[in-house]
């Protein structure tokens, strides 16, 4: 059982606060969904967690080990995997080579192909020539082979057909059911809430909701209010 605990985290970009005093928890077997309008600070939050950008304050801990001062590579070796937005495949490498780069000594490439059998036939194809959906599958499978405890996924549905998005969501749910702690940043709110356990809604860098996914899914009006404003009091005291 692994647990990511983020406390009072603040992140600045160009000295302007983008994420302010955010608390977040992700646990093995569960998906923590992070929602919010464009510019709410969701991607910055994930980039701060994985170490792409430094945090201005607060702590990040996996199973009690604090990581906020570690470099991205060290955080990865501690079990934090980050699937960035924009499908960051290694373009000049084949599908299989992409997978081999991340292959942890205790992992097997067959696990990646078991999760996404679509990639088997594309194993010798350069990643730049894969479709958008295949590239997204590849970056998720690649992250899986680092043997992570916590998987951060940023906007995996961007620019993809709904049928592919549903396919990816199913795979992510499967990963969580297998014991991973997942933090999923997503624009497709309804779909993300349908597979998630715990939801966070961010607005202007702050978490304005921290609660159950099912509850939020049943209250589209509340979700709408959280996105657009006037609901700061929704955060439990």
């Amino acid at each position: 059982m692994s647990r990511l605990v983020v406390s009072n985290m603040s992140i600045n970009r160009a000295e302007l606060p983008v994420v302010t005093a955010v608390d977040l928890v992700a646990e093995s077997g569960a998906i923590s969904v992070v929602l919010g309008a464009n510019g709410a600070g969701k991607t910055t939050l994930l980039e701060g967690l994985s170490g792409i950008i430094p945090v201005a304050g607060g702590t990040i801990a996996i199973d009690g080990r604090e990581l906020q001062k570690a470099r991205p590579g060290a955080r990865s070796r501690e079990g934090l995997a980050h699937v960035e937005q924009g499908r960051t495949v290694f373009r000049q490498l084949t599908t299989e080579e992409n997978l081999r780069v991340s292959l942890h000594p205790g992992a097997d490439i067959a696990e990646a192909y078991a999760l996404f059998p679509e990639l088997v036939q594309r194993r010798a194809v350069k990643a730049s020539l894969l479709s958008g959906g295949e590239q997204q599958m590849l970056v998720i499978a690649r992250a899986l082979l680092t043997r992570p405890k916590v998987l951060l996924i940023d906007e995996m549905s961007a620019g993809l057909a709904p049928v592919i998005v549903t396919r990816l969501m199913t795979a992510v749910r499967k990963l969580a059911d297998g014991g991973l702690a997942v933090v999923l940043v997503e624009q497709f709110a309804a779909l993300a809430l349908s597979i998630g356990n715990r939801a966070y809604v961010m607005r202007r860098g702050r978490a304005v909701y921290d609660g159950d996914c099912a509850k939020l899914r049943q209250s589209p009006d509340e979700l709408h209010r959280l996105y657009l404003g006037g609901a700061e009091s929704a955060v439990p005291a």
Partner: peptide
Amino acid sequence: GLNLRALADRPMAAELLGVRV
């Protein structure tokens, strides 16, 4: 060599996978 080619393509993505950049 494979890790170096990945590093050349996307240094941050390689580092996020634990490659010792």
